[in-house]
Simulated assay, not measured.
Amino acid sequence: MWTETDTPVGPLRLVETDGALSAIEFAPWSDATGHDRGERDDDHPVLAATVAQLSAYFAGRLTAFDLPLAPVGSDFQQRVWAALREIGFGETASYGQVAHRLGMTNAASRAVGLANGRNPIPIVIPCHRVIGADGSLTGYAGGLERKQLLLGLERPGLF
């Protein structure tokens, strides 16, 4: 099942699989992945809860999401995405810091960055909170403008 919602970072398509949020996609949509999203269902409980929590987040009333999640990825990607969920609202971490939290050295920063870039549930799994070692904004699947907006929402004056 899926639905769409308008947000300050543009329209988002939310995808539910087996009772859990499995994807958040930025517009413009890419349907070339071949993933079957099923039918649109704006009233599905998981999707409705996601819309409500995203609305509260963007309104500044929510700092932590409480949703069932089902991101699809390798074991390493799952470990990285779990580490991303530990970066608190308004906080940032470098790729190297995330690697260290996983018990790895800075040499794993590139692998962490690749896993970060493949995060299928951005915003809720806060990959936007990962920045360069020098504090600079680095790549973001949704675009650096969206990343800057999300970070600024969480920590006004950061950029």
Rank of each mutant, 00 (worst) to 15 (best):
W2Q: 04
P8K: 02
P8W: 04
G10E: 10
G10Q: 13
R13P: 11
L14D: 11
V15A: 07
D18C: 02
A20I: 00
A20T: 05
A20H: 04
A20N: 07
L21Y: 00
S22V: 02
S22W: 09
I24Y: 01
F26D: 04
P28I: 01
W29E: 09
S30M: 11
S30K: 13
D31R: 05
D31E: 11
T33L: 05
D36V: 00
D36P: 04
R37A: 06
G38A: 06
G38R: 11
E39A: 14
D42V: 07
H44D: 10
H44P: 07
V46W: 05
V46T: 13
A48Q: 14
V51P: 14
Q53D: 05
Q53C: 00
A56K: 11
A56L: 13
A56Y: 09
G60D: 06
T63M: 03
A64L: 09
V72F: 10
V72C: 07
Q77R: 07
Q78E: 04
Q78R: 08
V80Y: 14
V80I: 01
W81N: 13
A82S: 09
F89R: 13
F89I: 06
T92P: 08
T92L: 13
A93K: 15
A93G: 03
A93C: 15
S94F: 09
S94N: 09
Q97V: 00
V98Y: 14
A99F: 11
R101Q: 11
G103F: 14
N106G: 04
N106M: 04
N106V: 01
N106P: 09
A108I: 00
S109C: 03
R110W: 03
A111D: 03
A111Q: 12
A111P: 01
A111L: 00
G113E: 00
L114F: 01
L114M: 01
A115D: 08
G117Q: 11
I121D: 05
I121E: 14
V124L: 05
I125T: 09
I125A: 00
I125L: 12
I125C: 11
P126D: 05
P126Q: 02
P126S: 10
C127N: 10
R129T: 00
V130T: 07
V130P: 00
T138E: 15
G139L: 15
G139V: 07
A141N: 10
A141T: 14
G142R: 12
G142I: 06
E145M: 13
E145S: 11
E145D: 14
R146D: 06
R146C: 03
K147D: 10
L149W: 06
L150S: 01
L150I: 03
L150C: 07
L151E: 05
L153R: 12
E154P: 05
R155I: 08
L158G: 05
L158D: 05
